[in-house]
Amino acid sequence: MKEYDTIIIGGGAAGLTAALYTGRKKLKTLIVSIDLGGQTLLTDNIENYPGVDSSPGPELMAKFQSQATKFGAEVIMGEANAIKKIGKTFEVNLSNGEKYSGKTIIVASGKTARKIGAPGEDKFMGRGVSTCATCDAAFFKDKEVVVVGGGNSAFEAAELLTKFAKKIYLVHRNDKFRADEITVEKVKKLKQVEVIPFSQLKEIKGDKFVDGVSIENIESKKIKEVKANGIFIEIGYELKTDWLKSLVKRNDKNEIVIDDRCNTSQKGIFAAGDVSTVPYKQTVISAGEGAKAGLEAYKYINGAEAAIDWK
């Protein structure tokens, strides 16, 4: 089994910055992640990252990535699904069966787009089901589509889709929308948009591609069959930390509880960024937290008196 000083789970702003710091401290570093760039990838234009006047999120994250790997961090695309404590080290298992050993772990896995859990959702992902309206809206020209959700991202997706699709059904579990009032009012007035409140998707149907959905009224349980080729899922994010629950303490939002130095309840495991209890889910905050976690990992390995200039 390949051994590392630190294994970083997650490749967003927190994970990549942690890798930059551990790399510069000459720690043998591995990043395990399902993507590189995290939530910032989905930002069209980031204007509140200091020193960067304005940049598309993916371009900024490409710089984070090249800076992290420049100082030696290795990257493996994959999903970590278990960590075992073996003596003083940790064994990280990936869903593809690979295993890696780390003296320290930095969990920076962020948030995950929430799924609706309806049959057909996974089968048709990329074949009509989309979680990125800005990427995929244009492929639904003159088609009928369904947007699921009641927050800003759902309403913004519906508004964007009016430029392409001929009909947009906006399905939400109740009639209270978290989106800003101004956006809700604007979208409700658009002719192509039909809001279907108190409802949820029961099934996404099709052969090779999506051709319809069953929409269930939550109160009456009545099913409405709708013809649609695109399903845009915009129901926010969740924290997937259940796989770590036996190792680290979490709060009621499933965030990993950390102190002001990114220590979790388990010595040797650190957490940084959106996955942790640190407030304000922002790229700049995640980067700072990643740096702290990286330095703390270095200190953990080299002892409390490790020479960090700026203690």
Binding site: L36, M77, G126, F139
Partner: peptide
């Protein structure tokens, strides 16, 4: 190619059917 999601990346080897991957990949992949 019935592209409904981008980026979609096709890998075309000689004498085989193309294989597609949906979504961005890092360089190592």
């Amino acid at each position: 190619f019935q592209i409904m999601s981008i980026p979609t990346i096709l890998f075309i080897a000689l004498g085989k059917d193309p294989q597609g991957v949906r979504g961005a990949l890092p360089k190592s992949e």
